[in-house]
Nucleic acid binder design. Sequence first.
DNA 1: AGCACGCCGACT
DNA 2: GTCGGCGTGCTC
Length: 747
Amino acid sequence: VTARYVRVAVPVPLHRTFSYRVPDGMEPQPGVRVSVPFGPRRLVGVVTDGPDESPPEGVDPKKIKPLLAQLDEQPVLDAELRALCAWMATYYHLPPGEAWLQPLPPGMTGGRSGEAKPLTMKTVTVAHFLRAAGDGERLSARMAQVLKFLETALESTAPDLRAETGASLDTLRRLAAREFIRLEEREVPRDPFADLRAISHPAHEPTPGQRAAIARISESLGSFSPFLLMGVTGSGKTEVYLQVIEAVLARGEAALVLVPEIALTPQLVARFRARFGDRIAALHSGLDPDARHEQWLRIAAAELPVVIGARSALFAPIPNLGLLVVDEEHDPSFKQDTPPRYHARDLSLVRGHLAGCPVLLGSATPSLESWLNCRRGKLELLELTERAMDRPMPPVSLIDLRAYDFADEDKIFSLPLFEAIRENLARDEQTILFLNRRGFAAFLLCRACGQSLSCPACSVTLTWHRGRGRLICHWCDHVAARPAVCPNPECGDDALQEVGFGTERVEGVLRELLPEARVARMDRDTTRGKALNRLLDRFRDRDIDVLVGTQMVAKGHDFPGVTLVGVLLAETGLALPDLRASERTFHLLTQIAGRAGRADRPGRVLVQTYNPEHYALQHALTHDARAFLAEELALREALDRPPITHMAVFRLNGPDADAVMREARSVAHGLQADIDAAADPESVWLMGPQPAPIERIRGLYRWQLHIIARQRAALGTLIARAMARLDDAKLPANLQVSLDVDPQSFL
DNA sequence: AGCACGCCGACT
DNA sequence: GTCGGCGTGCTC
């Protein structure tokens, strides 16, 4: 019998797989987990290729070790997921281990700590009625109550009994000891929707646009067909999803729905739940590892044919995928900004292709990438032009802050906006105020020496949070007390001044201006844990008049009582060194405007700005996504920027500024040499290397190097060669190099 | 990424 | 005399 070998993706950041000998008796197929020796360690990996009878080339046969164990009889990654992982590894130049283990829950890979462990099911104690109390058998009042209840119910869970009678588990045990009842541990599925409030959604007749979209997608089921569903807020994209999913389920197939952040879209989830009941799986970061593991297993067993989740749910092990939906496809959170840096929207098209099913990208304000794909015929455009029930889009007005007086000393509220808030309050209608900056003051500035207080570990200013009484770095979470005097040793003046404002200050100033208003704030500081859902419920219940928030308030919530939306400073995002700054501003303004006037009352939107001529603002005024997209696309074309061209960025960081710079230059030299030697050097550009806009984070100096190419293939070849050089290079241990293909963040 | 091996300072 | 600092080398 000849030896057999398999290739295994192991969870290490190395750009290659490792070969192992297959011991007799094992039959490891691709997609099967195996336990392997790796140096002094043992790791859980996934078989990518083999078994193969010829030994791997280029490996010293003496070094090849046998597999320690085969952990699965059948592959845990089916052919579709394996192809998706392989595609992802190639496109994003990921180490195979990073790509191939991505779909598996931490419990199946051993996660951080060594061994894969079997999932323990959640259990609940169930009490069964055995007999009633005889004469002379004395029972406590509570015990009698429990017994009386069980006598008719016959069985009940301990939590239900506690709710019914107040009886503790201990009381139940005493009853069981006297053989009045029998206790049993029963396995129960964990509920990923435990803290979700049910929301009823009135059904109404589909509009002609909805009907056409549903028909077009439904007739494409069973084959790869990518669509862009474009429709303004309130035009009923969700209803299209729901009806198409019904058609998918009727074919015996499953549907996968990706949403930007599941915690911020409880209403969408609630509607899915109302329609599909307990056939829904949820995969999101709020689930504990066991709950996630359990959802994963139930999805793989085809028990839950509707999967809804954030970015990482793209890798859900759905065996018979019949439809992929990416809601709010333009949302930047679909790109993961930590390794592995993949874009779930882009990968959804790959998976749809592999699964042979329609992919439905939905947005009111499509990304430029998707818009270009439409124009090139790679996506079919389906448009919803009418809003349900003929509600008009709310009028948007720009308030030029240079032309008006302010209601407050901090110059937060222009008089027109303040008057509008007051009128709205008098009419007992709700208001949302949006500012994309949290904290109280943006930073503290010393008027004597002109220095501002910055983070000791990062090259950014500290943000003053008055409620917590602390200066906080939004990049490394460094927390500092507020100094009484300027910490500059050559200054020491007490002239520290608060500069700029965040949501916390807006909230405070508004409380002073309108003491009778019930004001609340929604940002990352106020929505830890379950606080977000509570806040949303209170606002919906109209316990809050004015909600001040960051971009969290722009997401898909539906608040019928909101008739006024105010944007405090529209240009906060425009100054960022980011090629998508205008695009993001347009998305945000359009989304936030969509919050106004969703019920029977008309809404309006007031946008404060010092920069009213900006085209992103002008197009948001008219709700004209097509006009914005056309103008922005022309701009990108003129500047040779994505999505017309293709981009990747090498980022380097380390504690030694000179070493980081040197290595960045060395990477650049290698790339430049490859470009010069290429057939078409004119179609590739290097930008940099240069220090990142935030030069230092957590004490590490950061440099970056952007590569732009006209052809995707040329970019891939260049990067592959640079990565190969880096793999061989002996870099200082504390110097990190990372690659980001199709970067979304430029800081 | 880990983990081991290896060569130089302050402790029982 | 040893415990332990982290440089650097390797993982089928």
